[in-house]
């Protein structure tokens, strides 16, 4: 029973991790941009959810629409206005650019909202359900399920819609896509916008789980990075598998070796995996 509970804890946590990472993975895979801004996008999504709930009474699970739309717009503008100018440069250049933007954005958020920790206090907390002796914290469970649903929608969008096919085409061969009439720079901006949208939506969902502060952005970025490398870059399935694996490994690591070593175990396995299978669990596959 203890192990079942730890497995459930790990899967719920892993779902949240996957949700944090999927937008980061998309941007890295399609644009070859390591988006250091990603953690701050998640934090901004949480703030949108917080203020929408406190001032407008909109439930954080509904404000994903609002935070997603706002973050999409922000992401689109940043890519179209700034990153597209250096997109052809080596990956280090875009990394430095997003790093600089992250310093600006994170400090702006600090000035605007202060470093004080806030939390969404739901008027009607969902509490926990006990099923077969296993505790399911319902807010976390719902956040994880919605995160999975959103990720499924992203998958469908990439597989079925015209714009999704364009993103996939640009990822596979930007020059051939341009010859087929795809406006590559616009697709870059849309992709970055979608990455930010997923981060913003994740932020809304996480606002019912984690305390909200600009200081969390580095933790979120770190998780996104590890999940992508663990699962394999540039695929939704990779982000899902990476997130769930990290959550479960961390949970069992904490149980078996002690809570202070949960992350140590996860990172040790990451290093091991990088040695034996550098492409990650799912290998390098496309969004097709």
């Amino acid at each position: 029973m203890l192990y079942a509970q730890i497995l459930v804890n790990g899967l719920i946590l892993g779902g949240l991790y996957a949700c944090i990472a999927v937008g980061f993975s998309l941007v890295w895979g399609v644009l070859n941009v390591i988006n250091i801004l990603h953690g701050s996008f998640v934090v901004l999504g949480s703030y949108v959810a917080y203020f929408a709930y406190v001032h407008l009474g909109i439930h954080p699970f509904l404000s994903i629409v609002l935070s997603g739309a706002l973050l999409f717009a922000l992401g689109y503008v940043i890519q179209a206005g700034l990153i597209n100018r250096v997109i052809a440069a080596p990956v280090l250049t875009t990394l430095v650019l997003t790093f600089g933007l992250e310093l600006l954005l994170n400090n702006a958020v600090l000035v605007a909202f202060s470093a004080d920790y806030r939390a969404v206090q739901l008027a009607n907390p969902m509490g926990s359900q006990i099923i077969g002796g296993i505790v399911f914290p319902m807010e976390r469970v719902m956040a994880t399920l919605l995160a999975l649903a959103l990720t499924g929608l992203l998958y469908l969008m990439l597989a079925k819609s015209k714009i999704g096919r364009s993103i996939v085409a640009v990822r596979m061969d930007p020059e051939a896509a341009a010859l087929m009439g795809v406006k590559v720079k616009r697709i870059y901006a849309v992709t970055f916008g979608v990455g930010a949208l997923m981060a913003g939506a994740a932020g809304s969902l996480l606002s019912v789980v984690f305390p909200i502060s600009p200081l969390n952005s580095t933790e979120f970025l770190g998780i996104a990075f590890v999940v992508c490398v663990l699962g394999g870059l540039g695929s939704i399935a990779g982000a899902m598998v990476g997130g769930l694996a990290l959550g479960v490994i961390e949970s069992f690591g904490a149980l078996l070796i002690g809570p202070q070593h949960g992350l140590t175990i996860a990172f040790s396995l990451l290093i091991l995996l990088l040695i034996v299978r550098p492409t990650g669990i799912m290998g390098r596959r496309g969004y097709e």
Partner: peptide, 20 residues
Amino acid sequence: FDEYAIGTMDHASALTLMRT
């Protein structure tokens, strides 16, 4: 007497054990 690392984002395992 359990310790958790700085930056830990999940305490479920430790607290599950504590509950038992």
